[in-house]
Each structure stands twice: as C-alpha cells, then as structure tokens.
Write a protein that binds this DNA or RNA. Structure first.
Length: 429
DNA sequence: CGATTTTGACCGGCGC
DNA sequence: GCGCCGGTCAAAATCG
C-alpha cells in the first residue's frame, strides 16, 4: 500500500518535471525563433546603412582579421614566466571544483599582429608604479606605444597611476567562481560593508610575479549573480580562454580611459569627480523604456574615489543592475552603454544561463530595431571608442573559436566590421 | 608532502 | 588622532 503511494507520488513528480521540460522546450524554441528573426532584421539594417562599406572593405573570408585584438602582457620578448613550474592550466582541477559546470569564457580571441598595434594605440597601461617596476620592459614598451598614440585619449591613469582601473563582470553563475581560463589562488575573504555575501580575493598564479587580482562577490539581491572584479594586467602568456577575458577587460579599461576625455569638464577636474557627471561620455544608448531593456548586456563606466571601474553586465537581467550599481558605486551615476545584442551571443558559451527566468521574457523585434539603430548612430560619434567596443564584444563573444568557424552571426560581423573601420574614414562621416 | 583554502591579524587610506 | 573599512598577509588547516 505504502509502495503504491510512493509510486503515485513519483509518477506525479515525473509528470510535473515533464511539464516543466515541455515549458522549457517551448521557451527555447521561442528564443531561437526570435533570434533568427532578429538576425535577419539586423542584417537588413546594417546592409541598408552601409551597404558598400561592408562589402568592399575586406574579403569576407578575412572577416576576423578586421577584429581588434587586445592583448595586454603579450608583447613578444618580454614574457617572463615565473619560476614556478605550475604553468599548465589544469582543467581537471577546475572540473573537480565544479567550474566546468560554471561559466566558461573559453573563446579564443584571434591574435592579429597587424591589428594589435592599432589597438595598442588606444590602450593605456593600468599599472601602479610598483607594478611598473616589477614588469620592467613590458611596461616600458607599453608606455612607448601609448605615447605614440594619436588617438587623443588622455589617460587619467597616467596622470594618477595609483588609481588602478578595474573591470567588473557581472554574470549569472551558480558556481563559486566563473571559469575565466586563468589560474587563481584565493588569498583572502572578507565581508564587505553593505553585502552579507563574503568577498573573496584571488591572485593569478599562472606566473608567480603576475600582479593581476580579482575579487569575487555574489549579488545581495540575486545570489545567482556573480560579480568578478579584475585589476591589473597579466605579465605572462595566457591560454586562449584566459586571453579572451583579458582582452575584454583590457578593452573595457581602454574604454574607461577614453571616457575621461569624452566626458565634459567637471568641477575639480579629478578622475573621481567624473562620477558626478550624469552622462559620463555624452553617449546614452540605453532605451528610455526600461521594460525593453531587460535582455541586453551593458557596460557601465563609473569611478569610485580610488578605482575607476567599468562594469560589464552579462546577466541578461538588468533589473538588478541599478540596485547593484548603487550598492557598489554609491557615488556614481553610471552610464549605460547598451550594446543591443540581438541574438543571444552568450548562448552556449555561458553554460550556467540555465535558469529559465533569464530567457522567459520574449524579445520584441521592433524594440530591438529601434535600439540598434540608436546605438549604431551614436557610437559612430566616437571612433576610438568603436574599436575598443568592438574588441570587447569580439573577445567576449568569440571572434574565432578554432580558426575555422566564427561563432558570430553575420549581423554581428557586420556590426563589428562597421566599428573596426579605420578611424579616419569614420570621422569623415 | 606540496598546493590550496581558511581565517584572524595587520596595515594603510580615508573621513570625521 | 581615532575609528572604519577594504585589502593583504601568513599561520594553520585541509585537500589530493
């Protein structure tokens, strides 16, 4: 009798799970449908805007070569590995810790020597004096390249080298940390004010002398959201997966640097006072309608007194963003740059985006059309920013995973191509 | 037994 | 000067 009851209960449970499964399938198919339709529409828009540019600028087979490669710490000849023998990237270990189930930023960023110089122009060192001493030649070369820049991006960091820029990445992640391809050792944990979740401190252990640190903290409002804050630049070669993240963060830092000049003069003129400016860059791509904004990744530039910070929000669920930002950067009026991703570029790459709630809301094409139009129009105002932006997007979404196929859809490629046009041609527009 | 994590102590910057 | 707070250190504990 009891067994029968158990059986019935189990059957009921199975039915419920089956129903849930069906619901998820439906959601997935809806997302896929949206994706394809948006992809088509985006393609149309880009083609209409710049039909010739896209078709004539480069060989289609050479699409990826147009992408900007940002690789800090990868200048040849200056690679000094630490004495530690542990230079392999032990994925088994990560798997043991459950990281393989977590976020995987395992997309390679195509390394283009010819193009990297161009980007280096836009990048500025993000080192403190101490770190500069440590890194010797590497940073010298970096400075040389930075000085050779004609981009006009003044560097607040050169003027105030102690204020190391940071890049925060917000992701949905169920594991302790997201797997960014690098090897880290935890060296501390603290309960930070304003958030009961402990903040963990990690340092890069790929090279013993690597100055890169990261902080990992869960969002108080949504425990599934993980905020990873990177600081510093790797002074060693990185595995492809790690260089992807490094490129993205570097791009974000460069974005931050450029913002310092693009922002209107603010009282005091210090880096920190920029936070009081409601529109840091003078750009605002964010939709006025908050309800249409929930699916798009945003990069937020803000600055605390000690650390200018770029926040890349990859959660798809920006309803938490405002509260989080207000918690972390209480002095900031962060500006949102809405990249208006049409498809779901994270799909399949961020494996922990498994929560149905993330995808449950459907994406409306009309809104996206409007948003991408606004975005492309406004972004073209700043060409330096464009390459940086493109680099960031490229590195995050994967320009070329294995050298054979790009994970970008054609609309994305066109979009990126548009932003990686030579600056001169952009400015003439 | 070496590598890694944990955790309390310590340090320095900042605001009052 | 003092206290708060973020960040780091380092000894002990744990893991593989």
């Amino acid at each position: 009798m009891q067994e029968e009851n158990h059986l019935k209960a189990a059957k009921l449970k199975m039915d419920r799970v089956r129903e849930e499964n069906e619901r998820l399938k439906l959601t997935l198919s809806q997302v896929m449908k949206d994706y394809h339709s948006l992809k088509m529409q985006f393609n149309d828009i880009v083609q209409e805007d710049h039909p010739k540019k896209i078709s004539t600028d480069s060989d289609p087979s050479d699409d990826e070569s147009e992408f900007v490669s940002l690789r800090l710490g990868r200048f040849s000849g200056d690679l000094k590995l630490g004495k530690k023998k542990r230079t392999s990237y032990n994925e088994n270990k990560s798997a043991k810790k459950g990281e393989l189930d977590g976020l995987e930023l395992g997309l390679d960023c195509k390394s283009c020597v010819s193009n990297s110089t161009q980007v280096s122009k836009n990048l500025k060192p993000e080192k403190s004096f101490d770190e500069s001493r440590e890194e010797g030649n590497f940073i010298e070369e970096f400075h040389k390249r930075a000085k050779a820049s004609t981009s006009g991006c003044d560097d607040i960091l050169l003027h105030s080298p102690l204020k190391k820029p940071r890049v925060s990445v917000r992701t949905v992640c169920n594991t302790q940390t997201m797997n960014d391809g690098c090897q880290w050792r935890k060296y501390g944990q603290k309960i930070a004010k304003g958030n009961p979740c402990p903040r963990a401190y990690y340092r890069c252990t790929v090279s013993s002398s690597c100055p890169v640190r990261k902080q990992v903290q869960r969002c108080m409002n949504d425990m599934t959201i993980l905020t990873t804050t990177y600081e510093g630049t790797h002074n060693h070669p990185l595995p492809p997966a790690a260089s992807t993240m490094a490129s993205a963060t570097s791009a974000a830092v460069a974005m931050l640097n450029c913002s310092s000049t693009a922002s209107p003069p603010v009282h005091g003129g210090s880096a920190t006072s920029a936070t009081t400016s409601p529109s840091l860059l003078g750009f605002n791509f964010t939709s006025k309608n908050p309800t249409t904004n929930s699916h798009f990744p945003t990069a937020t530039i803000s600055s605390s007194q000690s650390h200018p910070t770029v926040i890349l929000d990859l959660t798809h669920d920006n309803k938490f963003s405002s509260s989080l930002f207000s918690n972390i950067h209480t002095h900031s009026s962060p500006m949102s740059l809405n990249f208006s991703s049409f498809n779901n570029p994270w799909e399949g790459k961020f494996s922990t985006f498994s929560q149905p709630s993330v995808y449950n809301n459907s994406i409306h094409a009309s809104h996206n059309d409007h948003k991408i139009a606004v975005a492309t129009k406004d972004i073209t105002c700043d060409s330096t920013f464009q390459s940086v932006l493109a680099a960031a997007i490229t590195s995050y979404f994967g320009s070329n995973v294995d050298g054979k196929s790009s994970s970008f859809s054609q609309p994305w490629r066109n979009f990126l191509n548009k932003f990686t046009q030579p600056m001169d041609s952009q400015q003439k527009n």
